[in-house]
């Protein structure tokens, strides 16, 4: 905090720029210490002399300088950066959406865990079986995708034929060439009773 004396010059030069408290303090000091009035006069004198210093330079032609500035900056008011780059928002959104769509289409999650929440409508998407006319070695079976309630369940590289129920053999069980290979039954443990019941009903319908 400035002392009263330190504020004296600011008081002399710009009393309006002091806070009411600062002004009160300096005025009280001036009242109680009359010698400071002479000090204030001396300050006023130095400031007046300083302001009267004649610039020792040859100032330029102001009109010419103004004209030069006008020509250099040009006639068009520049746009602020946020308006110059506002096209970035829709383009960015578009690019992001496209990127998400691409990832979604080309990188189906390989380790998606089936949860009870996923139980519901069960559907199998079986790709077209590879042509049997092809000569050996036979191509590896295409990945089979299973959807449950819109969620993708990865079954690995399973021959889609293995997933089909042989309607001609009513004794066929899931342990053999039935609906799903035995190794992929782990997700069944995650089903709650209600979902299991629905799945069983669906299987029964399919079998029947």
């Amino acid at each position: 905090m400035a002392t009263d004396e330190e504020l004296l010059t600011a008081y002399v030069d710009g009393v309006g720029e002091l806070s009411p408290d600062e002004r009160r303090r300096v005025e009280q000091t001036l009242t109680s210490a009359p010698e400071l009035r002479a000090e204030a006069d001396a300050i006023r004198d130095v400031l007046a002399k300083s302001r009267a210093i004649v610039p020792s330079t040859n100032e330029p032609d102001w009109s010419a300088l103004e004209r030069q500035i006008r020509e250099t900056v040009g006639p068009v008011v520049p746009l602020p950066w946020w308006r110059r780059t506002r096209w970035l928002a829709p383009v960015g959104a578009l690019v992001t959406t496209a990127a998400i769509a691409l990832v979604w289409l080309h990188h189906v999650p390989a380790d998606h865990a089936f949860t009870p929440r996923d139980a519901g409508t069960l559907a199998l998407a079986v790709p077209t079986a590879p042509s049997v006319a092809a000569e050996p070695p036979a191509p590896a079976p295409a990945p089979t995708t299973m959807y449950i309630d819109g969620q993708v369940i990865d079954l690995g590289n399973v021959d889609p034929e293995k997933l089909l129920i042989d309607d001609a053999d009513p004794d066929d069980t899931a342990d053999g060439d039935g609906l799903l290979p035995v190794t992929d039954y782990g997700w069944v443990d995650g089903l709650d009773d209600k979902a299991m019941e629905r799945a069983e009903r669906w299987l029964a319908r399919k079998k029947g």
């Binding site: 400035a2 330190e6 504020l7 010059t9 600011a10 030069d13 001396a42």
Partner: peptide, 16 residues
Amino acid sequence: ENTAKVNFHYAVKRLR
């Protein structure tokens, strides 16, 4: 602003 006022005071004092 306070520091500016104080610096101004000492500048003028020194000039004197």
